[in-house]
Design a protein around this nucleic acid. Sequence first.
DNA 1: AGCCTGACTCCTA
DNA 2: CTAGGAGCCAGGC
Length: 104
Amino acid sequence: MDDFASQIYSVVYQIPHGKVATYGDIAQMAGFPRYARQVGKLMASLPKDTQLPWHRVINAKGCISLTGEGLIRQRERLQAEGIEISEAGKLSLRRYRWMHDTDA
DNA sequence: AGCCTGACTCCTA
DNA sequence: CTAGGAGCCAGGC
């Protein structure tokens, strides 16, 4: 496994229940600034039975980047954690964003 | 090398 | 808050 992938997985795995983080934040926390796109590509390659909380990863706009089935699945998972999210998959980033140093 | 694509982000209007 | 445009990185043709 690549070092990049290992670092990203490690960070995503640390996102607490009921919280979310953006691709950019994760990339930065993992030590790879500006690698948001690569994080997304990594998430897209995850096996469907992964234990990684990939559903807690969203974009900087505060909404799910997936479409169709993927959007539905992620939205359901987030709602299951007590997160208020719109039909389009948008949520209050101000309220649910995971700050590595301020929360957790 | 050049061009296009994508679970991205920031700045400006 | 919504749109448009440019910047960003890796991978495929």
